[in-house]
Design a protein around this nucleic acid. Sequence first.
RNA 1: GCGCCCGUAGCUCAACGGAUAGAGUACCGGUCUUCGGAACCGUGGAUGUGGGUUCAAUUCCUGCCGGGCGCACCA
Length: 562
Amino acid sequence: MSLHDTIKKWMKETLNVEVDFALEYPSDMNHGDFASNIAMIMAKKEGKNPRGLALKYAEILRNDRLPEVFDIEVAGPGFINIRISPKVFASAIEKINAVDKSFGENNNFNGKKYIIEYTQPNPFKEFHIGHMMNNIIGESVSKIIEEQGNEIVRVTYHGDVGLHVAKAIWGIKNLGVGTNINIKILGEAYALGSKLYESDEEVKKEITEINKKVYDKSDVEINNLYNKGKEVSFEDFETIYERLGSKFDHHLFESESAEIGKELVLEFEKKGVFEKSQNAIIFKGENFGLHTRVYINSEGIPTYEAKEIGLMKIKMDRFSPFDMSITVTANEQDSFFQVVEKSLEQVFPELNGRVHHLSHGMLKLPSGKMSSRTGDVMTAGYLIDIMKEVSREKIKEGFLTELEKDNISEMVALGALKFTILRQAIGGDIIFDINKALSLEGDSGPYLQYATVRAKSILKKVESEKLKVESKIPKEWKTTNLERLIERFPAISARSASVFAPHHLVTYLTTLAGEFNSFYATHKIIDENDETSPYKLAITQSFVNVMTSGLHLLGIKVPEQM
RNA sequence: GCGCCCGUAGCUCAACGGAUAGAGUACCGGUCUUCGGAACCGUGGAUGUGGGUUCAAUUCCUGCCGGGCGCACCA
């Protein structure tokens, strides 16, 4: 049981109350280690004075004190503030440094299986910074849930058929490059086809024709271009996944889900879930307070909606049993997913409550909205590269090989990007100002990496000195805020997992790194003449361990030096 | 027009209904005889607006103002 749960149980039993109350980490650490509103709630219920009741409760608690509890105070309108004994923190630090699995273990929802679908880049289109954002969020959420002892099936889903493919193929044919194509040409081809599709009726006809041939595979030349293009796209995706540190267990395709979805929609049309309207087959969302959407168009082709039904069927067939299927997309698809989820409930009632749409905002550049149709995209690779260049210039001069410098700047560039994306609540748009991101100062990925690197550097130095790292608490030791923060790590990561919110973790790690930097500035950690030095080293060690684990959950690596 | 989301400091973001609304950045001032200055310390600055619920509202309800996204055969 966590410290938090132990304290809460003790309060509940000692005070003999039935109501649910809050026991939380106060935002101001001067208020103690835990604060409870129990007196305020009970005062309301019993019509008493909150502060008076709090004083009474504090007295009862003091007389039946838990060994972990150091002090109990009443403050403000009737908060009961609890201060934890210094040795509890020392023992937490000891556990962390022993890499004892029991620290951070959480049994709240262990052992469940989650399917998490994210990134979804389409072949024949470029992997842009929007895909990157989705990947970074999806990967971090996966790791955070995984950390709590759950199984994650990482899935991505590709639109390998459809109009965008036909547009790109038309473009390749008309750029006159034959099958000699690379990712850059693919992007140009798509932009060209897309542009003329809208402005030129002739081209539109040709593209529609190509689209049919892609489906029925009747044209050898188009088949060749299609296969080559797909190959080039997926090679590019693999390179970028590798850089982002993300690896999928399964790739699913629209070319598979389309037919399955179509059959299911037709089957459930007979059962009244879907209905015919203007030659198309639709789901009447109005009946559920939503809007109506087309599942099979008037030409008998399944739309994105029907494909989602098919996709779910594929997930069920391949990954059952599972507890939850999560799809991560941008929030422009919110209302679309509401309709799809409602229709999924009708088709697969057994999935009720197990399908979740996790939506995030858009990554916006101050220059405006980007579009791959007009060729006005910033690819993920390009953005990482320019970030990398800047971080490379800031690397401390030393005996580093070019390869080492390259590795470090890659880690720092990605750290900066991932921090920027994960620092704020998932739902909102991110205004990505490259110049600010490039400054790499203040709250940022490099700030967290730097604090960790400095701490590591201290520990390395100790190896050659006579000092030992010891978590035995020195006499007269006054618990530091750094220790208090370190102890909270398991609680924070559990909370992040339960609400799918990496930003709680980011906020925590940023505070923690700041606390360490202050500690570093005000304490001399290595000092043979200081008897508290071994304990300060133990704190430093546990800081490194917590930062490394925490950053790992965000997908951020820590270099040895920077 | 309908639906969903959003509005916190000059800018970019926090705040699980709780205490004096926190950070970074920018501006200004300070810290190097100490383990890495991508650092540390300090000053000033904010809840769009009117009601309501509550012991307590940035948070919940509601009117208005402002912004974003979606709304029939794209994904």
